[in-house]
Amino acid sequence: MNKNCEQFQILLSGYMDGELSAEQVKQLEQHSASCPECAELAADLKAVSAVTREYFSGVRQAVQGISIADEVYARLEEPAVIPMAQPRSRNVFMKPWFSAAVAAGLAIFFGFYFFFPSGKDYNVSQNTCVVDSVETRKGSVMVFKDSATDTTIIWLFSAATDMTNSGESVS
């Protein structure tokens, strides 16, 4: 095989299948006339194609009697599979509203804690009721309404201590 053979051999399939230009055909035929190795390969590839086509002809005949149309039709008529919804997370700590609530609670807590650090003692009467409350891990904020004195009481409870920490009253 000379150094030009490879560039001609790659054209052999195109030559067999009638896919080459006239110029390529001419060059390939000139080369093959002087190169027994390429001529032999061309003959072999032609034989491979002939044998394969005969084989595939048998495959085509074997396939002729087979139909998958009914199976395909049945599959197309199946109700579309609706993807199951992902199970909702039961972890309340992952909820967006939980983060917002914690942030709001902490803001209120620290706001009162730092700006009203020394609340006066206040005795809660029996007419007091809880209006609102926010609990966090660091403590709680409770808002009372004392109807007897018409006073709003805000209690800040630190989680580290008991419920006697502080109290603020707003009239």
């Binding site: 051999q9 790659i10 054209l11 052999l12 399939s13 195109g14 299948d17 896919e19 390969l41 072999d44 590839l45 034989a47 491979v48 194609s49 394969t52």
Partner: peptide, 12 residues
């Protein structure tokens, strides 16, 4: 063309 050549050659 290239794939066909190499396929036929391997089968050969």
């Amino acid at each position: 063309m290239s794939r066909l050549f190499y396929a036929r050659k391997k089968v050969r």
